[in-house]
């Protein structure tokens, strides 16, 4: 990075460190913080959407929809995360490739499964072998987001359906007494009020999601924990910047990052909870009313 970095072994400590901290590998490590934040920014709303649909489905008056919602939440919550993270992307990837294979190579005569091999024609590969590296990476990232959204959506669905049940029954009865239809009562009365009951559960989920990102490497996405382990491991003189085991320092850095992230989110959730309890028939809402009066 700097001009004096051409012969690292001849440098004094300070310059050596400056060069070391700006190698291509270190830069990739810094970028991976962005990857993690991007993943969180995309996954959280996606998981919330999955959760919301799951919660609505499990409360639905249409029986098959209700079964679907219940099956989704109880299945995903009951199966270990790691199995889901391995299963969802592989199954989805092979499913999509199989569909493309059927559409694009109708005259392929070999079986798709040969022993343990999964074989589709070259045109059906997803992404294509010829696609540039960033396409492969974004595809992997998209699969990772989907896997996270499915798993965390199931937990969110459970939190949200609990929150829907916690809205006082009297509110819905009043809505019906005013002549609102079922769906009107749900959208105008139930949904706006349920968030305050869902918030503690959702904030828990968020904190767990923040810490679950190392699972990313299972899906081939290189996150901060992968890089900390890779960079911190002791390096012999095969590398331009040999150093002993520095994992402690790298993981200390991660510790600070995760603590900062979680304490920031706690503050955001505290504010959100304040906002949402305004005008609610809860103890916190009552307190606001008294303070304002």
């Amino acid at each position: 990075m700097f001009e004096f970095c051409t012969a690292p072994s001849a440098l004094d400590d300070l310059r050596w460190m400056a060069c070391y901290l700006t190698t291509g590998k270190q830069i990739a490590f810094y970028w991976s913080f962005g990857t993690v934040l991007l993943l969180l920014a995309v996954t959280a709303p996606a998981a919330l959407a999955f959760g919301f649909l799951g919660a609505l489905a499990s409360r639905s008056r249409v029986a098959p929809l209700r079964w679907l919602g219940t099956a989704y939440t109880s299945m995903v919550r009951g199966i270990p995360d790691i199995i889901f993270f391995l299963f969802v992307p592989i199954a989805l990837d092979q499913g999509l490739e199989w569909l493309r294979h059927k559409a694009k190579c109708p005259d392929w005569d070999q079986p798709v499964r040969q022993g343990s091999d999964f074989l589709v024609c070259a045109e059906a590969k997803l992404p294509l072998n010829t696609a540039p590296q960033w396409v492969h990476e974004s595809y992997g990232f998209a699969l990772a987001v989907l896997a996270f959204a499915v798993v965390f959506g199931a937990f969110a669905a459970n939190v949200l359906s609990g929150a829907m049940r916690a809205v006082p029954r009297a509110q819905i009865e009043t809505a019906e007494a005013y002549g609102m239809s079922h769906s009107q009562a749900v959208w105008r009365i139930l949904v706006p009020q349920m968030w305050i009951y869902a918030l503690p559960g959702l904030s828990n989920l968020w904190q767990i999601l923040v810490k679950a990102t190392p699972l990313l490497f299972l899906l081939g996405v290189q996150d901060i924990v992968y890089w900390a382990r890779e960079l911190g491991g002791s390096k012999t003189s095969t590398f331009a910047y040999p150093h002993p085991d520095w994992r402690l320092w790298y993981f200390l850095g991660l510790l600070v990052f995760y603590l900062a992230l979680t304490s920031l989110s706690e503050r955001v959730f505290a504010r959100l909870s304040h906002r949402l309890s305004l005008g609610q028939a809860t103890a916190a809402g009552e307190k606001h009313r008294k303070a304002a009066a």
């Binding site: 995309v42 992404p127 010829t130 696609a131 396409v135 974004s138 998209a142 989907l146």
Partner: peptide, 26 residues
Amino acid sequence: MKKLLLGTVLLTATAGMAAAQDVVRI
């Protein structure tokens, strides 16, 4: 967003179809 991303990837993947097939990923 997620669907959009996946959609874009699918599109780009299909667009690159005509290129040579003998890329070996190791």
